[in-house]
Design a protein around this nucleic acid. Structure first.
Lengths: 215, 215, 215, 215
DNA sequence: CATGAATGAGGGTTCATTCAT
DNA sequence: TATGAATGAACCCTCATTCAT
């Protein structure tokens, strides 16, 4: 494969990475297309060979980066053996590990800012990211209930109650990248553990809970 | 006071209200100064008689709107009589009532998007809003521990674990205003109750907790 | 009336005049909006206070300049007293006087180049300019036939045969403004007379013609 | 000659044909070089192997297409036997047949739009196309006068008066290709006949004309 | 010769900001 | 003080042209 073609094949991903970084750091509006091109090591015009507009670039950034991560998490959950409490704690940790450090958190933040200006993008995000994630968490809760490990509970509100703090943490983490003043004063990983401690007490089936406490 | 002067005295607040609404609906970058002036019922030029730039307007919006709400919440907590669990649940509800429906949620969202571009603003926000809020929650936890109602716990991470879901909910609520696709499928007030249920189980002192369960 | 308002009232016409001149000299695509603004004595941004886009500016240029001239010519024809041959000759002269020296010729030329790119504009031009002009010429011919001055004839094709050379002359004249190489080597006014002679009198050999003249 | 070389030899003409078609349909400015290449079945870069710039391509298009057609017409005239009136009518028809349906009309239109932006091209066009055409028409008139078929006349203005409507018709015809709204409502071929009738026969009232005819 | 990825100057358009009235 | 016409820097995007392969 000639060098030129190798470059061409790599371009879209290089541009997406550059765009992701800048959109997440500075916001969509505050990022100039020329900066994206520069960070990707190409000229302004080249960007437009791959993405027809700045908005399409944003769509591609979101489309590409998120669906994949969600899908991977779902796989891991499906294969879990063992207690549901441990599974849930692991999911919390894993989400943090993925989203907190990878791009996902930045994208959540981006969507929260830009959704109003790009309704089509918001619909896509809701359908491809948020809803699958909800199903993922719901599956874990149902598993726990079915196995008698979790007490019966209203599923939808519990799912929301579990996702909310995690989503905030990943957004906060990415905000801190470009704005250290707003960084969490405690290590977010520790907060994740604390969240797990708190909610697992509330989720456990009463019998199990008392047994644990007595131990 | 003649009507003209009353108008003049009210101008800054009218401009701030207009700016708050628009910044929160559309984002800072997507809001034009002319729109702000129009919503406030003045001309484009008049805006600049009161605020020297769009950025200064943003600062004033944040400065004005938040500190007040935080201060009011702190007052209510200081005056509470009764159980700490109930106090905490009430704080969660109250925050939701205030922030979810008033402007505070929109400002959180705004800060999360714009902090990177306005570091000075972020510092101000951290010092005047976030840190006081943390002190407020910490005070409640310390009260509960001191009264034997809550078990001993790592305070900082618990505060973060409590604030995170609430902050997410208010941001989500305000996102939904301009983007219905991203609205929560469950009533956020219900999610607040569910959060309270979950974390209070985890916070209660063991003795108290087991007593509750046995009952 | 304050000076500022007087300026504002005059702006649209100043911009239209500047745009007409430049579009006609250089063509639509080759004219930069900044040039139009400069010729009108304002800055680039000001143009957009009056016309929302370059294309709308072109529409306004055409709408404004032509309909008026056509309407005036129709008036003059309606009021003519005397022989139809002389009326027709006078119309040819007048069209040349108006169109050849005023803006109309430039606009014909502009339409011929740009019609394909702006179909809506072409429809407007056909309905508001071309068709009224056809009616004007047709009216003259019908008048002559009714009065026994002209022989019966196929009207539509005769109208086309009369308009064609005149339209060419005005376009040529305006081309010559920006391109002297293509100027007519004979005075177009003389060509107009010659056209009148030909169509009124024929190309026949002197013998036949002189017999006619003697009559 | 191997196929490859035949292809290579044909390239310039294929490019010129493609360019002619597009320039005439959309105008010079609105045609992208890539479109020309695509229509000619080559890549963008290849175009530049044959023509050093878009402008040079335009020059070649004009140079190539017109001179040839003019030359052919002149030949036919020189060989004509018979009456000058019939010769002239035949020339009108032939011009229409050639120019109206072939490329010449499009090029006239193109020159009229672009002459101002390309003075060198205009000079070339004047010298190679317009002036020879004038000589052609003048020769026909002189022939008629010499044979006593046409009355003496001012030659230059008569030539202009004859060419003007024909040039307009071919331009209009080509405008109609890309803009049906501006198409002539009468068949141009019919208009050509009418032009011939008029200029050969006059617009006079039947009385005058019949006297002539009787002679 | 042929390709097509890459370039970057240039132009249309927006909008925060100014200032004459 | 209030207005709103005017400004012009900045940005998105296009496309003629180049050049490594």
């Amino acid at each position: 494969m000639p060098a030129r073609q190798r470059r061409k094949a790599a371009r879209p991903q290089e541009l997406l990475d550059a765009a992701l970084g800048l959109f997440v750091e500075k916001g969509f509006a505050a990022t100039r297309t020329e900066e994206v091109a520069e960070r990707a090591g190409v000229s302004k015009g080249t960007l437009y060979l791959y993405y027809p507009s700045k908005e399409d670039l944003l769509k591609a950034v979101i489309a590409q980066n998120i669906s994949r991560e969600i899908a991977e998490s779902m796989d891991r959950v499906a294969q879990h053996q063992g207690g549901s409490a441990e599974l849930l704690r692991q999911m919390l940790r894993e989400w943090w590990a993925n989203a907190g450090e990878a791009s996902c958190g930045g994208i959540c933040r981006l969507m929260m800012s830009e959704a109003g200006n790009f309704p089509a993008l918001a619909s896509y995000y809701e359908a491809e990211v948020i809803e699958p994630a909800r199903r993922l968490w719901r599956a874990v809760l149902e598993r726990g209930i079915a196995r008698g490990e979790f007490r019966p509970m209203p599923l939808d509100s519990t799912v929301a109650a579990l996702m909310a703090p995690m989503l905030f943490l990943v957004m906060q983490q990415h905000t801190a990248t470009s704005c250290p003043q707003l960084a969490s004063p405690v290590d977010p990983a520790e907060v994740v553990e604390r969240i797990a401690d708190l909610v697992l007490d509330g989720l456990r089936a009463p019998a199990a809970a008392s047994r644990v406490r007595r131990a």
